[in-house]
Each structure stands twice: as C-alpha cells, then as structure tokens.
C-alpha cells in the first residue's frame, strides 16, 4: 500500500488526484440524474393507462377520475418530474400497478432468484472461460485455439433464448436429464424456510437434500445457457490479454532461463493479467443480468427478468420504469467498482 507519509499539505499530484476523484463523483451524479430523467421520459411516453389497472376495467368514471388525480396525472409535467426525482432519490419507486405493492419490495423479492442464477452462471462461465482463454492464447493457432474460437463465435452469435428453448426440448423433454422450468419443483417449494431467498443455500441450511438436488437440477440448464455467453466473452478477453502478455520480454527471458511454458504462463503471465480478467468478470456479471431477461422468460424463472417482461406486457408502468432505473444503477455501480478495482489493484495504473 502506497499511503506513504507525505505531509499534511496537498502535493500537486495529490491535488490532481483529488480533482480527478471529485470530477468522477460529479460525473456519476450527473449520470444518475440522467438515468432518472431518461426513465421518467420513457415512463411518460408509455401509451398505457395506469388508472385502469387500479380501478378495473368496469369502474365507473367517477372512480376513474379520482384515481387519475391521486396518481398526480393532472399535474404539469415538470411538477410530475420533480416528484419523480424526489421519489427516485429516496428509492420510492411507487407501487406496482399489478401487485399493488411497492416496486422496490417486489424487486427485492424477485432479485435473489436472479442473483442465484447469475452467480451460478458466473462460476461456470469463469471456470471454463478463463482456462480456455489462456489455453487458446498459449497454443495460438493450434486446434485448441480453433475449437475455442469457434465455440466462442457460436456463443455470441446464437440467441440465448433460442438456445434455452432448444436446451429444454433436448435435455428436459427429450432426455430427462434436468428439471424443467421454474426454480424448484412446486412440491418442495414450501417445504423449507427461505431465509436468504437463494434456494441452493436455503435448502442446505434446512438440511433438505431432496429439495437441494431438485433445485440443482432446475438451475443447471438455465445457468449453463447463460454461462455459455459469459464464457465466450470471458475467454475471448482472456485470450487477447494473454496474447498481449506473451509477447512481452520477460516471458522470453523466463523461457530462456529454462522455465517450462506452462509454468511461465500460469505463474508469471497470468498474474499480470489477473486484474484485467477480474474486471472483465465483473462486467460480464452485469451483462448476465441483461441476458437473464430473456433466459428467465424461457425458463419461467421467477426473477428480475421475468418480473420486468411481465410488467412490460401487463403495462405496469411503475414496475417497468423502476426496473429500468434499478438496472441502470446496478450497471453504473458495477462499472464504478471495476474502475476502482482497476485503479487500486493494477500495478501499471499506480
């Protein structure tokens, strides 16, 4: 750690650092404000009638008008925006028009399912993607490299909702290797206490092994489909980082010193690209959340993505806007973390 004692005053270098930090914070603030403005704009553009969702299709006009006023739809746009901004800052996203509950509460309820799916996908994607990327760079232009690159190419060319559908048809309906749509069989669902909302952990905590096995057999297919796209991204990036590293002089020196190729790559070169790979993994986690939207729809996975798509189709404006805003905030946060990670950990940016 380089917190050397440099006296209490601001050195020019520190001053620059401080300014950079302040600018960074300010720009994130502006970005977040922009996020809010953009989602508000989208929300107002929606040609849906939020009132009807509340009063019902057959309500008398008086009730309709009352709810119209209650929702503040008769106010000028700017007043509506300020109100929206205020509620966005306090993360009060309003009530979902479908469930009648606060959107934030709904999102909190469905989020663990998505986190669980994305995390398992992440583990599989990283576990396969990083070694494949390294191997591909190590043996550039060999058959391994070609296989890995072809698989990656297919991975980012295939629509993952289609892969999910085909996967269900083959591995569930056809071969019966895995369980079908949903997170867990209905019969197990309420047989244990859901403390964390992460079923793999909850079933272990409850010691309910049947339920655990069932949850595993449900998650493996959607996670594998998601992991496939994460893997292609991770291995592609890892390969290009590693390829750049392998042309460095120290690699040649190490080779000349008689270190084995495998040892050189894993012990030396990999250490140098570790931070870059870590940021790529963090970024791909963010993209997994995006991929989850369609995958969850295909697998009837009761997570964030399905919540969003059903809100879209039900015309639940508050939920759509809330979800979009939350995803935006998560994205900005993950980017920020990557940035910080990079600055703090990477030897070259110190």
């Amino acid at each position: 750690m380089r917190v050397a004692a440099q006296g209490g005053y601001l050195t020019p270098r520190r001053r620059r650092r401080l300014r950079e930090t302040l600018v960074a914070i300010a720009s994130i603030g502006v970005t977040l404000l922009g996020l809010v403005a953009l989602t508000f704009f989208i929300g107002r553009m929606l040609p849906l009638d939020p009132v009807i969702k509340i009063v019902g299709e057959n309500a008398p006009q008086a009730a309709y008008d009352r709810v119209y006023r209650e929702l503040g739809l008769d106010q000028p746009l700017i007043v509506q925006f300020l109100g929206y901004l205020k509620s966005a800052v306090t993360l009060d996203l309003g009530n979902s028009l479908t469930s009648g509950r606060p959107v934030l509460e709904d999102i909190g309820r469905v989020f663990p399912a998505t986190i669980e799916l994305a995390t398992v996908a992440m583990v599989i994607g990283t576990g396969l993607g990083v070694p494949l990327g390294v191997l591909s760079a190590m043996y550039a232009n060999s058959w391994i490299d070609h296989v890995v690159r072809t698989v990656c190419l297919i991975g980012y060319s295939a629509p993952n909702f289609w892969l999910g559908l085909m996967g269900l048809m083959i591995f569930y309906a056809g071969l019966g290797w895995v369980s079908g749509p949903g997170r867990i069989d209905f019969v197990y669902e309420y047989g244990f206490e859901q403390r964390t909302g992460l079923l793999l952990i909850d079933t272990i905590m409850a010691g309910n092994w049947d339920a655990f096995r069932n949850a595993v057999s449900h998650i493996v297919l959607p996670a594998a489909i998601l992991a496939f796209s994460a893997m292609t991204y991770i291995s592609r990036m890892t390969r290009s980082f590693m390829a750049a590293q392998l042309t460095q002089e120290y690699i040649i020196t190490a080779r000349v010193k008689g270190l084995s190729w495998r040892r050189t790559v894993w012990r030396h070169a990999f250490r140098n690209i570790a931070v870059q790979v870590l940021t790529v993994i963090a970024l791909s986690y963010a993209f997994l959340l995006e991929g989850a939207v369609l995958t969850e729809t295909v697998f009837a996975w009761p997570g964030f993505g399905r919540y969003l798509t059903s809100a879209l189709l039900a015309g639940d404006m508050n939920a759509v806007v809330g979800c979009t805003l939350i995803i935006g905030i998560i994205f900005v946060t993950i980017n920020l973390i990557c940035d910080v990670l990079y600055r703090v950990l990477d030897p070259r940016t110190r």
Partner: peptide
C-alpha cells in the same frame, strides 16, 4: 447515461 443501461433493457 445511455451506456448505463444494457442495450436490451
């Protein structure tokens, strides 16, 4: 601001 959202969303 636009990049803060995944493109599909």
């Amino acid at each position: 601001v636009f990049l803060a959202f995944p493109s599909l969303i």
